[in-house]
Nucleic acid binder design. Structure first.
Lengths: 204, 204
DNA sequence: CACAAATCCGACCGGTCGTGCTATTATCAA
DNA sequence: TTGATAATAGCACGACCGGTCGGATTTGTG
């Protein structure tokens, strides 16, 4: 029962790549099949519908995201180091799977999908909303721990922190991908440092 | 020569509405014609191609944006008041043309288009990039004036300010439209206040 | 090797896409 | 009112869309 699973994985892999560029709706069964050098019907046989494929792609992206940016941060001590790690891993995530030798960013698929589905109801949107909520919850949690550790001021609102954290990443994607600003990553780090400084407990 | 121009304007108007929800690529000539109750070919006769229609829609959006958020700010005194006005008008712009009685946001079409075209080369993308550069330049300029007025610290980087300014708006769109967070606007204002406070010249 | 199950293919369906071409209707100056 | 012209409709096209189906091929297994 290995072959089918392998092909299915290849389909999802390639679809995820293309979806990062063209959006999930923009990925077409025919073109996807061509690229994989299999027939359209052969491809389709692995999914009950296009929406099922889209969901599979999204789940794959979620899994990779958790594996590459969310889960590893627990190796860092709670508080500022862990928050820093979360941010750095997020920035690294923008470079794509292979790390990306160039300093050009591929961007975060979830941010693209967020625009694509913010007005398009359906199962894909629901799954996306769910994972985005989890993501900001993860940021909040890290910030919350930083408060507990005494690194952040006690009156800090972790969700507000998460809001601004998210904004920096979105601005990064915008500057890097659309405007092609080479200083985007530096600007993002700089903004993050300011966010950290402002959140930090004042040292008397 | 009035009739044709009127129809053309209606087409662009409606197309802009739909494009805010479905993206520019998602707007289809057939559906657009149906909604306007004219024939597809009758609609098409007003534009040489679909791309020309897309460009016309984009130009229309740009014109409205300049009229509703960029140009009016000069009525405010230079410095912090003008920067504030720019932000508030931007937030108001998120509510759509008519002001939007509800506290739900319609979102900024340019942010949607930015994701849609950040990987799709062509004339539309070029025009979009141009206007987005102008937008961040406008923010930078306002910040720059605030430095000159002595409201902002002299070592402030106006482009860095614009970067973070932009990030707040993007986070706002994300929170409001996708996650449907009712506190999004409050969070955005709060983030903006923090940005302002940090940029302000220290009062001794 | 044999055979059943898993996998994949080619042909095809009804629709819709953007886009031309031609004919018809509406508009407006003379 | 007429006639030139602008505006719109009708229709057809090739391409591609998501999706179906029956049969061919490959695969793992005994």
């Amino acid at each position: 029962m290995g072959k089918g699973e392998t092909t299915r994985q290849q389909i999802v892999d390639t679809a995820l790549q293309r979806a990062s560029e063209l959006g999930l709706e923009g990925v077409t069964l025919g073109r996807l099949a061509d690229e994989l050098q299999i027939s359209k019907s052969g491809l389709f046989a692995h999914f009950k519908s296009k929406e099922a494929l889209q969901l599979a792609v999204l789940e794959e992206a979620i899994e990779r995201f958790k594996e590459r940016v969310v889960r590893p941060i627990v190796r860092q001590p709670r508080g500022v180091p862990r928050v820093r790690e979360l941010f750095e891993r997020w920035v690294a995530w923008f470079r794509g799977e292979s790390g990306g030798i160039e300093n050009e960013l591929l961007g975060c698929p979830f941010l693209s999908l967020s625009s694509e589905y913010d007005d398009r109801p359906g199962a894909v949107r629901d799954a996306l909303v769910r994972c985005q909520k989890e993501w900001i919850a993860a940021i909040s949690r890290a910030a919350s721990l930083a408060v507990e550790e005494g690194h952040f001021r006690t009156d800090l609102d972790p969700e507000q922190f998460a809001f601004e954290f998210k904004g920096i990443g979105m601005a990064l994607q915008h500057s890097a991908k659309l405007v092609a600003d080479p200083t985007a990553v530096r600007r993002a780090r700089s903004a993050f440092d300011r966010l950290l400084a402002d959140a930090s407990a004042s040292v008397h």
